[in-house]
Amino acid sequence: MNKSLLKENLWDNNPVFVQILGICSTLAVTNNLTNTFIMTLSVIFVAALTNVTVSLMKEYIPRKVRMIVQTLIISFFVIIVDILLRAYLPDISKALGPYVGLIITNCIIMGRAEAFAQSNTPWPSFLDGVTSGLGYMWVLMVLAFFRELLGFGTLFGFQVLGSGFTPWTIMVMAPSAFFLLGGLIWAVKTIMTMNELRQCACNDSTTKK
């Protein structure tokens, strides 16, 4: 069951590809692998703990005010993340600027709390939060990999491309994030449809036998 949840959230029902959720807060920091890593790690932390909290409290929250209660729970964990970053990683905290606070409005967290944690027990909810966060993380890390590599010639701040490399300025600026994400969605959708076609073909041949 846990394995299927992992596959579901990382691939089949990936929050970024299938629903285009939650890219607002993080797309802006994807021109740097380190920042993206810290940011998505924070999203995983908040998503997992919010899911657990909502799942534990679901019987005590009146249905009418559940949205605002969920938002408050999310804000609570985001504040913890913000304080931790300020204390231990002040440089990154400065570079991320307002985007840490914007995790609150990341639709993935609210969406998972609403769709999964409301109707499940704490442990599966925790796993769901972690796996949705991981699904989100790998997509943005791929984006950040290309943007940092081509934009600065570095990976995690280390120079990898030689001095002969001319950085692509466009990769540092906003449009490249849209182009890369659009292209990535194209690639993934094509692979998904090909897999489906193959499965259909297999099913047909087995039924014929």
Partner: peptide, 16 residues
């Protein structure tokens, strides 16, 4: 193209 329909082409348009 089929795979690009929907969000894919929208994102690329936003890029332009």
């Amino acid at each position: 193209p089929a795979g690009l329909k929907g969000p894919g082409i929208t994102l690329i348009t936003i890029g332009f």
